[in-house]
Design a protein around this nucleic acid. Structure first.
Lengths: 138, 138
DNA sequence: GCTTGAGTCTGTAGTCGCTACAGACGGTAG
DNA sequence: CTACCGTCTGTAGCGACTACAGACTCAAGC
């Protein structure tokens, strides 16, 4: 299957948990280098596995593909790049926190609406009422 | 400006905080009905303002446009639809909570990485190290 | 040898919720 | 009458995939 030279895209997919189509997509946008080929088939080595795993972990932390691109470049630079990486992460962290705050506001409003639905207090549906602009009674 | 018959799209935009292009987009996808016209210009009445405000509030709660469509239909039905609206909201609430959980995991990992960067403990960048798959020391 | 089935290939189009034009037309103030 | 803003239609772009269609390659079983 991999006569000493590497693994096929399906094996890489299984190893990294990244869909085959997504791997090809990453290659197309230049996030992954064009790999070696055996015939028409892509052939991946250890460095490719590591790079894709890096991308996957960064994506799991919510970095955008452009940020991942920057992180990959910084990782290639080695030392020195730490301060820049820290900046990227800190900016992204602020973004994540803002999104959490937004979602928490949604959560509170939704939970309240559902609670009032369950209580069955007001005439009419409290959820639809709230969306229609009728303020909730205290 | 609005000789008794309604307001223009720009005024509707200002009143609802919804971009002009977005209003036209909502119309195109059938979320808003095609409004009356004065000449070539769209002309909106009170019902249009209310409907768009409803959409805006639902979007602020994070409902998808398809969910908003369903909510609008339920609102039009009046009573009886409350149980269904509740179901929609409860499902969406679960979704929001799942997203919050995801983001919190990201937040924790990012905050930890930034903290370890600041501590400057390990050799090399801890953030890049973590992305590269080198587990953080306890 | 021949077939079958899984895997892979390229290329294109769809998703969601907008956003950003281009290029033409309408209405009003100076 | 001209300048300028608002509005019109239509199309294309964004991010990050996802989902095909239709062709090919390869290894295994009969």
């Amino acid at each position: 299957m991999d006569r000493r030279s590497g693994i096929a895209i399906g094996a890489l997919s299984r190893r990294t948990g990244c869909h085959v189509e997504t791997i090809r997509y990453y290659e197309r946008i230049g996030l992954l280098p064009a790999p070696a080929r055996r015939g028409r088939y892509r052939l991946y080595g250890a460095a490719d596995v590591a790079r894709l795993a890096f991308v996957r972990r960064a994506r799991e932390l919510g970095f955008t593909l452009e940020e991942v691109r920057a992180l990959l470049a910084l990782a290639a630079e080695g030392e020195g790049a730490c301060a820049e990486a820290r900046e990227l992460a800190a900016a992204h962290l602020a973004d994540v926190r803002a999104r959490i705050a937004d979602l928490r506001a949604m959560e509170a409003a939704l939970a309240e609406a559902v609670r009032r639905c369950d209580a069955g207090e007001a005439p009419g549906c409290p959820l639809i009422g709230a969306l229609s602009g009728r303020a909730a009674p205290a």
